[in-house]
Design a protein around this nucleic acid. Structure first.
Lengths: 187, 187
DNA sequence: CTCAATGTAAACAGATCGGTTTACTTTTAA
DNA sequence: TTAAAAGTAAACCGATCTGTTTACATTGAG
């Protein structure tokens, strides 16, 4: 097995464990056991637990960018409808139980207040995500797409967090009703 | 010192520690040492660490309800302006560095996916908070205050989380601009 | 004054934490 | 074939985790 594959294997297992059980609550021993590797190997690929988590956030971002745009374009062939489709996309994942909240938000809050690689990685993700929303707004032909994107991301984060906390996709409906107004005004 | 005072002392110290350093990252030993009590005393007042955290969420809610309405009424003598004043109230705390995110959201996310007293307590807080927003909407004379409150809380949570993650009050401005539209439409 | 309640300090339990290191085996590529 | 690279298992480090228990001191109300 090549280096890259081994590393990817660690990432895949660690990603699921941290996502499901939290960051401080999941020890590196669990990651080792789950992946089936020794501690030495783990620390050959990652300098520290926090560095591993930072890389996982990058992995989360890449996964999002490689799946969301395709699915969103499928949901709305019309570019103008894709901002709304972003919300439908996430809501659908909540409905089917495959969305467990935003990995980057969860990581950021759990390491909140400190300066760690985790903070840097999550801030980078937020920037990437905001840029994606900006592109959706611009391509949709909306006025002042940068300002609109800033409003949309707040709405989106609120829906994600509330859905995760309440284990219900209902907050997405409230968010979508606000978004509809926002989009109508920016048409 | 009476029972109630002793318990309150534990709560006060534990509240600060968990707020600043996170829940799993803060051990009960730290709470003991900081409060200046023995482990036996701690476990006399609280059955477990998770029960302690659940009570802290209740404490967070009480603290909010005993301070926010007063300050918000001061910020906006006109009831119609108090929904917006809620956002100004929190934004001001971010500006002065005294707001560290929502205690209940942080706790809920860190214990996400499991069924603990922490979940129950945070859900109860969200309900209390939503009811407060509903009362602000109703007293402000807005149409369909229950629906409006559901939209407002999503917006609010999004601003809180984004501010905490980015350590900037800027998301509150985006949220406020959306809220202004929302309130205008519900006038 | 006395006795029960409340507190303390500290040992103990068994487990886990992140991280390093040693000794040995397997794989892989020249 | 051989030597380097990469892997393993496991001991070790010092610290921490939640929670229980024991033995003793303080306190306060009747």
């Amino acid at each position: 097995m090549t280096k890259a594959l081994k590393k990817q294997e660690i990432i895949d297992h660690a990603y699921e464990l941290f996502y499901d059980h939290g960051f401080h609550a999941t020890g590196v021993d669990k990651v080792m056991a789950d992946t089936g590797i020794s501690k030495r190997t783990l620390y050959k690929y990652f300098a520290s637990k926090e560095d591993l988590i930072a890389e996982l956030i990058g992995h989360y971002g890449e996964r999002f960018l490689s799946t969301a745009p395709v699915e969103i374009a499928r949901l709305s062939p019309d570019p103008a409808g894709r901002v709304m489709a972003l919300f439908d996309f996430r809501k659908a994942m909540f409905d089917e139980g495959s969305f467990r909240g935003c990995f980057a938000i969860s990581a950021n809050l759990e390491y909140s207040g400190r300066d760690t690689p985790v903070q840097a990685a999550s801030l980078k993700f937020f920037e990437t995500f905001l840029n994606y929303i900006k592109s959706l707004c611009a391509d949709g032909g909306y006025k002042d797409p940068d300002k609109l994107a800033g409003q949309v991301i707040v709405l989106f984060n609120g829906a994600v967090v509330a859905s995760q906390a309440s284990r219900s996709p209902a907050p997405f409906d409230a968010a979508k009703s606000v978004l509809a107004m926002l989009l109508a005004a920016a048409k």
